Amino acid sequence: MLLFGLFSLILVLVFWVNKAVSLLDTMMGDGQSIAAFLKITSLGLPILIADVLPITAFIAAVFTVNRMSSESELIVVQASGFSPWRLARPVLVFGFIASLMVASVTHILGPMAQHELSVKQAELSRDVTARLLTEGTFVHPVTGITFYVREIPPSGELLDIYLSDSRSNTQRTNFLARRALIVKEDDGPVLLMFDGESQSYNVQSKKLAVTTFDSFAYGLGDLLGSASTGTRQLRAIPSQELIMTPTQIMTETGATRVELRKTVHERMEKALLATVAPLIGFAALIAGGFSRFGLWRQIFLAFGLLVVVKSIDSAAISAARRASENWPLLYVPILAGLAIAGVLLWYAANPNVLRKLPPRAAGDTP
């Protein structure tokens, strides 16, 4: 358990830093504070932890068995009469504890964090809209967009604005207007410009088209990535609600009962993987027997088998997400992992079963 906690902390920090670096540049470029950055990244930790814990449980089991073997503790225990099946019992208990941790994250903490994350993203979207209201400064809310407003009087109007949209490789558009307003619509904020002109330049033909207008509406929803928090997604709903109130959830999200069932089983499968992974690591190492040169071949075999199980897991998840009716396939990697561990433990208990029998002498009878 101590090694499991240590490896989990290290891997979570590594993956968190890897994701946080790119997010930090984006949020700092949007003028967000460090507090907002830390809150966004911390809300993404539960999903990251649920993905990491099965791997760290596997590493902890492999590391412990390898150390016990190198210090001859495993040999002493086996010599006292303990079978591989009996030795696998504490590993199974450890895996069950790890599964409970993963289940608490996938069924409860993860969905709650996803809901808070969607709320926070909606707040940040509104903050980005507010960043456009900066007098006398050229702002760049996203790549390819430049916005400028000369003055914002107490009435709330925007006086003398400039908007440049160069996100397209074939066309660049500039808007100039004497005054404008930002209004909220269902699909996001809209910039209403009055008494202005648009300049559209075609990069390929090198032609400029100028159009004057009395009023023009420019949608900012796609530009600012507006988010709605009125309807929750399935990933943001705890499993208890999916099981206890399926009718209300289907009405709220528009999902089918099969999709709800697939979501719950996908979370259960991720938790069960934390039990299977350490069993595979333990079984692969104990099946190799004692060696003065260590258990490096068995360690590489254990990692290879884990990669195989994870590959089956990825294929099963992809099949279930393509068609929710395929949710029973989610348990194929669990069954495959248990089968692999069972075969290895059986071989460890019967090490001579695959060895060649000595050849019979000429006069021997069968």
Rank of each mutant, 00 (worst) to 15 (best):
L2H: 07
L2F: 04
L3G: 15
F7A: 09
S8N: 13
L11Q: 06
W16P: 04
N18M: 11
K19D: 14
V21C: 10
T26P: 00
G29D: 09
G29P: 05
G31E: 10
A35N: 06
A35P: 00
A36H: 05
L43Y: 15
G44V: 03
L45Y: 01
P46H: 03
L53E: 05
F58C: 02
A60M: 04
N66D: 13
M68L: 15
S70T: 12
S72W: 03
E73Y: 04
I75Y: 05
S80G: 14
G81F: 13
A88Q: 11
R89S: 09
G95D: 07
V105T: 10
P111N: 12
Q114D: 13
E116A: 15
S125A: 15
D127Y: 08
D127A: 13
V128E: 03
T129Y: 08
L133A: 10
E135N: 11
G136M: 11
T137Y: 08
T146P: 03
P154W: 14
E157R: 06
D160R: 13
I161M: 09
D165I: 07
R167S: 13
R167E: 09
N174G: 00
F175H: 10
L176V: 00
A177R: 05
R179Q: 14
I182G: 07
E185F: 06
P189A: 13
P189M: 12
L191N: 08
D195W: 04
N202K: 02
S205R: 05
K207S: 10
L208K: 03
A209K: 11
V210Q: 08
F216T: 02
L220F: 07
L223S: 05
R232F: 02
L234T: 14
Q240W: 12
L242N: 07
T245W: 09
P246L: 08
Q248L: 15
R257C: 07
K262I: 01
K262W: 02
V264C: 02
H265L: 10
R267N: 09
T275G: 14
L279F: 05
I286G: 03
A287R: 10
W296S: 15
R297Y: 08
Q298Y: 03
F303N: 06
V307K: 01
V307G: 12
S318R: 03
A320S: 05
A320N: 00
R321W: 02
W327I: 01
G337K: 03
G337I: 01
L338P: 01
I340V: 10
A341M: 08
L344S: 05
Y347C: 08
A348D: 06
A349T: 04
A349V: 03
P351F: 08
V353Y: 00
K356M: 12
P359A: 14
G363L: 15
G363V: 11
P366L: 15
